[in-house]
Nucleic acid binder design. Structure first.
Lengths: 147, 147
DNA sequence: TCGCATTGCATAGCAAGCTATATAATATTA
DNA sequence: TAATATTATATAGCTTGCTATGCAATGCGA
């Protein structure tokens, strides 16, 4: 009556994010990776051999979340971690051969999912949609600072 | 280079959903509730005394997720569960006084958050944005069926 | 250079989502 | 009506996010 979920940006964003994640999960399962590993993989495909701290700086998650994700990625044979040559606290993160190998298929999967999910929108609508998303994100991050 | 997160609907949706949830979490913390309880509360404020199955039918989550959320809501003193008069397998779900009491403040908090987060968009842009979200959701759910 | 602050990472513990499976009660059917 | 199927809910175990905290190594200032 008074609060319609389907008119609430917060609700719609949560729901669509879950649907997207599910789609992606199904699509990349054959590659042996899961959605939470995607951002870290993207970053490592760009630049390998970095420390956790350097990797973290390129991602929008918390340090503890990344540490746990990296542990699972190591368990799954996607990365290895070596001692840092100069700082015994740090470790450098390296893609395994498998981690490197799946790159193209993973890109393709993600690109396809985005295309399919947005297939109902025109090119102009898609542009506006992504732009609105970026502006909403920017707005919330501004807001947070002023707390 | 080849895959820019900030142009990926999936990434932007995940990120904005997390930011929204964080905002909501902070805003409703004083009420003693958390974001995951919101949809169930909305439904119960509309109609109380229902079974888990009836409640589930109005939500977009899985049965097991709801069962766990209800257990936490009971622990937190928001609901109680009574034996169903006619079916010993089922239980009816009832808001406590506290669960009923926070209704208006919770509505207000959610409404405010939506407004603030969308404050950078014009009315027309907001409309288009919500409409795109609903269309994307619809599209993915269609897709899923044909798997 | 010794002591303290900072830094890099890990761990604990929680929420909220999922799938798969268990359990008990009810309903159906041979 | 006895055996079987279905239904309502709960539980186990996983991921992905979070905050708070621990711990060891490094860096810096007196």
């Amino acid at each position: 009556m008074e609060f319609d979920r389907m008119s609430s940006a917060g609700y719609l964003l949560n729901y669509s994010a879950r649907l997207f994640a599910e789609l992606l999960r199904n699509r990349i399962a054959p590659l042996g990776i899961v959605p939470g590993q995607f951002p870290a993989l993207l970053a490592l495909w760009e630049k390998d051999g970095v420390t956790q701290k350097e990797l973290l700086a390129t991602l929008d998650i918390e340090q503890a979340t990344l540490a746990n994700t990296l542990t699972r990625m190591e368990r799954d044979g996607l990365i290895t971690r070596k001692e840092h040559p100069a700082d015994a606290r740090a470790r450098t993160i390296h893609l395994t051969e498998r981690g490197r190998f799946i790159r193209d298929s993973a890109y393709q999967a993600a690109t396809q999912i985005n295309q399919e999910a947005l297939a109902g929108l025109s090119e102009a609508e898609t542009k506006a949609f992504l732009d609105s998303l970026r502006r909403v994100i920017g707005r919330i991050k501004e807001d947070e600072k002023s707390l």
